[in-house]
Write a protein that binds this DNA or RNA. Sequence first.
DNA 1: GCCC
DNA 2: CAGTACG
DNA 3: GGGCCGTTACTG
Length: 299
Amino acid sequence: MKDEWRILSYRKAISAIKKYKKPITSYEEAKKIPGIGLRTAEKIAEIIDTGNLKRIDSFSEGDDIIKKFGNVYGVGPSIAMKWYAKGHRTFEDVLKDEKLTRNQISGILYYDDLQKRIPRDEVTKISEWVTRAALSIDPKLECITGGSYRRGNPDCGDVDIMITRNDSDGTTHLGVLSRLVEILRDQGFLTHELVQHNGESLSAKFMGICKLPEGVHRRLDIFMVPYNEMGAALLSYTGNDIFNRSMRLMARKKKMCLNQHGLFMNVSRGRDGIKYSEGKIIAQKTEKEICDALGVPWR
DNA sequence: GCCC
DNA sequence: CAGTACG
DNA sequence: GGGCCGTTACTG
């Protein structure tokens, strides 16, 4: 199904409504909000008038099952629909009949835990745990929790931690992630590794599942960041995704290119593996520097 | 779906 | 390569 | 009509 862009549109509308803060009391008011068009404004009006949206009542049990399948880590819209089309209705069906990837098995095994929101103070505790382990490797490491936590949310879907190190003394954080993962694993804190870190890169990352001694299983991402890229990393890993996409679209319109490493001149590069040559970087060290270069107000 |  | 995941 | 983030990064 090609609902991809309609879904994105709805997500933008939801984001716009949240940002709008005050209650929407009329069709006209809704229609004025950027990101809310004719069709969504009509639906909002229906909710204002009747307190309900009729289309939602017509969602079938099958829709719910496909949605549940798609919420499994490692399962997206394509596989969720495939499973349903093959007659699967429960995780038991899937476990019995499907060849699953290791991540999908973890996703089903810890489905209930991973669906739960993480209270903000537990995110703090998880961050402190990881930070303590990191500093035991090198006290000059800097750990910053990003994601919805850095956006100030009262609860989060996962924990995103960026780790960097001021390299002006000639030392970097190269190789730290492997050691950190090993420590956290030995502590029994890490229970599953979903994505392995990419070698010994300064941009290595970890994606997995962790658990505090008295807690349930939680998704944890650790992103290693080269010191001079920290601004770009902070922007990217704080998000949210709709914000990132709009920023990157804005960059592209100005013939620039924004990613988690920095803001670049949008010049074509050969596919010979060479990444970003020196002359093409515009900004990356601080968030303000990048926003200034894009002409976006910072704070 | 929305926006140009 | 398609599919999925990260913000 | 046609684009909608990243030449993002990883899995199988």
